[in-house]
Write a protein that binds this DNA or RNA. Sequence first.
DNA 1: TAGAGGATTGAT
DNA 2: TCAATCCTCTAC
Length: 196
Amino acid sequence: MECLPHLFYQRNNVTTIARQLIGKKLTTVLDGHVTSGLIVETEAYSFKEKGCHAFNNKLTNRNKVMFEAGGVAYVYLCYGIHSLLNVVTGQQGRAEAVLIRAIQPLAGQEFMLHRMKLKKLDRITSGPGKLTKALGITHSFNGSSVMGPNLFIDAGPNPHRHKIIATTRIGIDYAGADALLPWRFYLKDNEWVSKW
DNA sequence: TAGAGGATTGAT
DNA sequence: TCAATCCTCTAC
């Protein structure tokens, strides 16, 4: 399966890309261990709104990866505990990214369980902090390409006919009116979505 | 340089 | 409802 190309990410429309990433396949290959899952939930973030780390084009040491050209990973530590994975989009200098919030496991489930120290697959990748742990994604991925060799996204199975719901994003009440933007996308009726 | 807070999660 | 946990950013 071929990776999505640079051009997919380097469009200046982050909500369109967030919607189109639903149903795609996210894979990591680490030390020969392949783990992958179907992306079932995303959120879009843009410099134009307060929910974004790079609101108003504010450049910091943490968010500088967001200003790179689309197609790289922006991974940061949340609440001191969880690594969250974003895919940077847009052209260079345009700070936009898509947060991957949930996946449905497709391959390497046994190794995901090992990483999570769990015995049941039950919803182990239903949340942004959980899927990164299951796939072995840490801060060391920050700035690395999502077109391989360790991390990549391809079209996945059944690329057509996904019913996608658009709704408000989670956990950004501090963003005021911007918290009401319908920039969260998920696959309808999918049990791996983090929250309905 | 100190202090506050966070794009979460799981247990109570 | 709340604690875990630590990096980042802001203010001084």
